[in-house]
Design a binder for these strands. Structure first.
Lengths: 184, 184
DNA sequence: CTTAAAGTAGAAAGATCGTTCTATATAACT
DNA sequence: AGTTATATAGAACGATCTTTCTACTTTAAG
């Protein structure tokens, strides 16, 4: 077996609990109980709580990208709309409490740890991805467009706890359409 | 003296620390130390940590509204742009780590406490405020417009930790202009 | 079948948390 | 001057946190 099933369970349970109650709001005991695992099993797979959080973030990031990769045709004539739809799908299926990466930056920022680096890295990659999209569409102001579109997606995520993922996504797609049409 | 200076110091210090490190990331000891106050002084003014958080949120909400009230002329022909500018001013002067109210909802949500109620109440009031703005502008789809504009502001707040308040506000105003022009 | 790896339960250490308590000091007001 | 409200420092409580430890059991591959 290339990878322990216990480790996978731990990651899954940890991500769910961390997302629902925050990193600092969940103790390892809770994770261990819900994963039906012994304390030392956790510490055999992860060197510390911080390390567990790091791997949870990496796992979530991978899954986020799989949503984008699956739905965004880069050569399409509306890749931004496709990205907004993919983002909405992710929210609908896995998010209802805002962005876990922003939360990691807020909770562990400016402390020189890997947690913040991973979270910021994800956002950076996202921005660059959208810059590519803008570039392929022949837009000259790639950075501005990428930033604006990211702002739209972050707004969508933030709105899910308030109005739900479906409506938030609806709005962001409507706005994205308007913006793509009327932006140089 | 209508209100203790110690209480004000506590609220100020608590808001700053809670905002920077999260509610669960800050202990009362830290707040007490930085406020140069005795333990019992805190407990004489606030019945618990939860209660302190509640009052911090109320204080912050008041200050947020004072930004809107000061800069938004409801009768103006572009109240939404003014609101976006006021929001940007608040971010620039008091925020660099996302929205404290969303964070409160995330951290204490679904636990039936006052913290969540206050935070959700603030967001609800904001939505209704923007609905009024849309109504005065003679828009028929008030709710949609208010939701979309709120999404824009939330996106702006979320982006501040990534690109700073100035740029984020710039983008949101640019987008707001485009949207106001091209939305029924 | 054996052996090494992986998992088990649970206690324990050491730190920190929110909260309460005690006992004292300061300041303002009648 | 005396009373009252507000502040003080710091010990103490019980709970919980992360991490480590011990000693036992299961699992899986050679």
């Amino acid at each position: 077996m290339s990878r322990s099933v216990k480790k996978d369970t731990l990651l899954k349970v940890a991500e769910s609990l961390f997302y629902e109650h925050g990193f600092r709001g969940v103790g390892l005991k809770q994770i261990i109980n819900e994963a039906n695992v012994a304390t030392m099993t956790l510490y055999n797979h992860f060197s510390s709580k911080e390390n567990l959080i790091e791997e949870v973030l990496k796992q979530r990031e991978e899954r986020y990208w799989s949503y984008l990769d699956a739905h965004v045709e880069m050569e399409s004539d509306s890749p931004f709309i496709l990205a907004a739809e993919a983002h909405g799908r992710f929210l609908k299926e896995e998010s209802y409490k805002g962005c876990m990466f922003l939360r990691a930056i807020e909770d562990y920022g400016e402390m020189d740890n890997n947690i913040e680096k991973i979270a910021r890295g994800h956002k950076q990659k996202l921005l660059e991805y959208f810059q590519q999209l803008a570039h392929r569409k022949g837009k000259n102001n790639e950075k501005d467009l990428a930033n604006q579109f990211t702002l739209l997606l972050e707004g969508t995520t933030s709105m899910t706890p308030l109005i739900g993922a479906e409506k938030a996504t609806e709005y962001s797609i409507a706005m994205a359409r308007t913006l793509v049409q009327h932006t140089s």
